Structure formats: structure tokens, C-alpha cells
Simulated assay, not measured.
Amino acid sequence: MATEMWFLRRLLKIPWIEKVLNSEVLAQAGINRELWGIIQRRKIAYLGHIVRGEKYDVLRVILQGRVEGRRPRGRMKYGWIKNIKKEWTGINTYQELMEAARDRTLKAADASS
């Protein structure tokens, strides 16, 4: 997405030293960003596919984060499930998320953001 903004700034001839917000650049270009909503819908659909599929046991274990071994040093990575669970759908627990995916009721709360 940074590359997209760089291209737009070049096309609109906005100097790199000028402080212009990304939202202002998008408004100037008249662009409505749909990519983020598409990514959200596809990730949620893929999660449902993994949860319902019988042949995806290994993927389910990986999604749950139950891999043996020591954790790496430093800040924990923001996981795939946390992204879907907390930010996109507003579901609080892992069990509720898996149940919604199994029942095909899982949808993004606000796909336009």
C-alpha cells in the first residue's frame, strides 16, 4: 500500500518533503480503496474453509498456535486470528470465532475501513 501511495504522489506531483496526509492524496486522486475490504473478506472466507475442511488438521493446529518449541525473543507477532477476531469481526473469544466460521455466519464488521 505504501507503493500505491508513492505512485499517486508522483502522479499528482506532490513533493516528498511536503506533508500531505494519505487520505488527502486519495481524495485528490479521486480513488476509493477497495483492496483492504477484499483482503478482509478473503481472509475470513479462507478461515471458514480451513475450519470446515476435514483435510486441514495441520492448518488448524498452526492457527491455534500450538506449535512445540520455545518462543522467539522480542515482541509477539500480531497473529492472523487476532486480526480477524478482534479488529474485523469484533468477536472476543477463539471458540466463538470458530463456531461462527463453522456456521458460515462469520462476516467482517466494517469491511470498508
Score class of each variant (00 low, 15 high):
residue 34 E to Y: 07
residue 9 R to H: 06
residue 52 R to W: 06
residue 11 L to N: 12
residue 88 W to F: 06
residue 50 I to Y: 00
residue 62 I to N: 04
residue 16 W to M: 13
residue 98 M to Q: 11
residue 54 E to P: 06
residue 113 S to K: 15
residue 53 G to K: 04
residue 77 K to I: 07
residue 103 D to S: 13
residue 31 I to Y: 08
residue 2 A to Y: 02
residue 101 A to K: 07
residue 11 L to I: 13
residue 111 A to R: 04
residue 32 N to K: 10
residue 110 D to P: 01
residue 25 V to R: 07
residue 89 T to N: 12
residue 29 A to S: 06
residue 58 V to D: 13
residue 82 K to E: 14
residue 94 Y to M: 12
residue 103 D to W: 01
residue 110 D to I: 10
residue 12 L to M: 10
residue 27 A to K: 15
residue 6 W to G: 07
residue 112 S to G: 02
residue 6 W to V: 13
residue 86 K to Q: 09
residue 84 I to P: 05
residue 31 I to A: 07
residue 111 A to K: 09
residue 20 V to D: 00
residue 68 E to N: 10
residue 51 V to C: 06
residue 1 M to I: 00
residue 29 A to E: 05
residue 111 A to M: 04
residue 66 R to E: 11
residue 8 L to D: 03
residue 14 I to A: 02
residue 98 M to T: 11
residue 79 G to N: 07
residue 21 L to I: 00
residue 9 R to Y: 05
residue 21 L to E: 15
residue 20 V to H: 00
residue 60 R to I: 05
residue 1 M to Q: 05
residue 51 V to M: 13
residue 9 R to E: 09
residue 10 R to T: 13
residue 46 Y to M: 05
residue 2 A to R: 08
residue 55 K to V: 08
residue 85 K to Y: 02
residue 101 A to V: 09
residue 110 D to K: 14
residue 11 L to R: 15
residue 79 G to K: 07
residue 90 G to K: 06
residue 46 Y to G: 00
residue 75 R to S: 03
residue 16 W to I: 14
residue 5 M to C: 02
residue 33 R to T: 10
residue 110 D to M: 07
residue 44 I to K: 03
residue 109 A to T: 09
residue 19 K to N: 06
residue 71 R to Y: 05
residue 34 E to R: 13
residue 13 K to F: 03
residue 11 L to E: 15
residue 65 G to S: 07
residue 4 E to V: 12
residue 44 I to S: 06
residue 65 G to F: 09
residue 23 S to Q: 12
residue 104 R to T: 08
residue 47 L to I: 02
residue 70 R to C: 06
residue 41 R to W: 01
residue 82 K to V: 07
residue 79 G to H: 07
residue 47 L to D: 01
residue 7 F to L: 11
residue 91 I to Y: 04
residue 34 E to G: 15
residue 38 I to Q: 10
residue 6 W to N: 14
residue 99 E to N: 13
residue 18 E to I: 02
residue 104 R to L: 13
residue 71 R to Q: 12
residue 16 W to S: 15
residue 24 E to G: 00
residue 22 N to W: 02
residue 99 E to M: 12
residue 45 A to C: 01
residue 35 L to S: 11
residue 72 P to L: 08
residue 93 T to N: 02
residue 71 R to S: 12
residue 26 L to D: 03
residue 107 K to E: 15
residue 57 D to C: 04
residue 23 S to E: 15
residue 40 Q to P: 00
residue 17 I to R: 14
residue 15 P to D: 08
residue 25 V to Q: 07
residue 105 T to Q: 14
residue 104 R to H: 14
residue 15 P to N: 08
residue 1 M to P: 04
residue 111 A to Q: 06
